[in-house]
């Protein structure tokens, strides 16, 4: 055993999720190779940048989802938050409000809805899966009631440079993703708040006993996810210039899938933002590649599902020997 006075960071200490991150990188390389061989269009700058833009909303939302899952929670209503925020944004634009009013409005809408989720799961003591299932219904209902089957179209693309623009030779969307993940990373790793997240995910009763304000931390985290959903809605509207009812239907599940693929444990207490980002990259590249290869995109769900099963099985087998307290 090392001496007690050895306070230098142990060189052998490797992040617990590193093996998953490496595996994902390998998988991405493998998949890219396959697609490059199968289609001449794959490895073009244009295609890759387009793919990244398609993954913009998913990557932003997944960052927030990672924090929620590390904390031991879950949120299946994110699609609804995106939808309702988009409606708020669309209506605000239609009312003629300028972009510097609409933007905070959209962000606040998302944050409020996220905070609602946090409130229901902490103060009303409803388990997160039920709470967010219920709120998903409610948000969908709001969306249908306001829009019906119609679209809100012809919206200004004022923010579209953030999606489609370039800063030098870097695509703007990449920068947006980078900023969001940097902020999430600081929250998770550089602030006491992040430690509290991990602690709550590990064992909520213990976290309470050491004096962590669990309720407040939870509400903040769900609200942050809502904030990111609002941001995603802003960028979506900027890109598509309209709001229609299919927005956000699968984003919650895809975000959860990306997060789990990336090495975050569904039980909480362990997680990786880098892994989540790699998970998003993988999912979007799969989608893109399948389309280029002429394979129906319907197979993508099967592939993600099967991958999740493999990943979960691998995790389960690896943890077989640890007596894990529930």
């Amino acid at each position: 055993m090392a001496s007690v006075a050895d306070t230098r960071p142990a060189l052998r200490f490797v992040s617990p999720t590193a093996s998953r991150e490496l595996a994902l990188i390998a998988a991405i390389i493998l998949v890219c190779t396959v697609f490059t061989v199968a289609s001449p269009y794959f490895l073009s700058v244009n295609n890759l940048v387009q793919t990244m833009r398609a993954g913009l909303e998913l990557s932003i939302v997944s960052a927030g989802m990672t924090l929620v899952i590390i904390m031991g929670g879950i949120d299946v209503s994110v699609g609804g938050i995106v939808a309702v925020s988009a409606i708020v944004i669309g209506k605000a634009y239609q009312a003629g409000l300028p972009v510097y009013v609409v933007t905070p409005l959209g962000l606040m809408a998302g944050t409020a809805l996220g905070a609602f989720n946090g409130f229901v799961t902490t103060k009303l003591k409803v388990p997160p899966i039920i709470a967010t299932l219920g709120s998903m219904y409610i948000f969908s209902a709001i969306m249908f009631l306001v829009i019906g089957g119609a679209w809100i179209s012809g919206l200004p693309g004022t923010l579209s440079p953030l999606v489609n623009g370039w800063l030098g030779f870097l695509p703007a969307s990449a920068l947006v993703i980078a900023v969001v993940y940097a902020i999430a990373w600081v929250l998770l790793r550089k602030l006491p708040y992040g430690n509290h997240l991990y602690a709550i995910g590990c064992s909520e009763p213990s976290a309470r006993l050491v004096g962590i304000n669990v309720d407040r931390t939870k509400i903040l985290t769900y609200a942050f996810l809502g904030l990111l959903a609002g941001l995603a809605a802003l960028l979506y509207v900027a890109r598509m210039r309209n709001v229609e009812i299919n927005i956000g239907t699968t984003i919650a599940l895809e975000a959860i899938a990306a997060t789990i693929l990336g090495g975050t444990s569904i039980r909480g207490g362990v997680g990786s933002l880098l892994g989540t980002l790699l998970g998003v990259v993988f999912i979007r590249i799969m989608q893109n590649g399948l389309v280029l290869m002429g394979i129906s995109s319907l197979w993508e769900t099967v592939i993600i599902g099967s991958l999740l099963i493999c990943v979960l099985t691998a995790d389960a087998l690896r943890n077989r020997n640890n007596p894990r307290a529930q």
Binding site: N195, Y198, C202, S206, V210, G269
Partner: peptide, 15 residues
């Protein structure tokens, strides 16, 4: 009341 998947340092200073 320790968080199992956190380090010694993190646990001592939790909260």
């Amino acid at each position: 009341a320790l968080a199992g998947k956190m380090t010694v340092v993190d646990n001592i200073f939790l909260g």
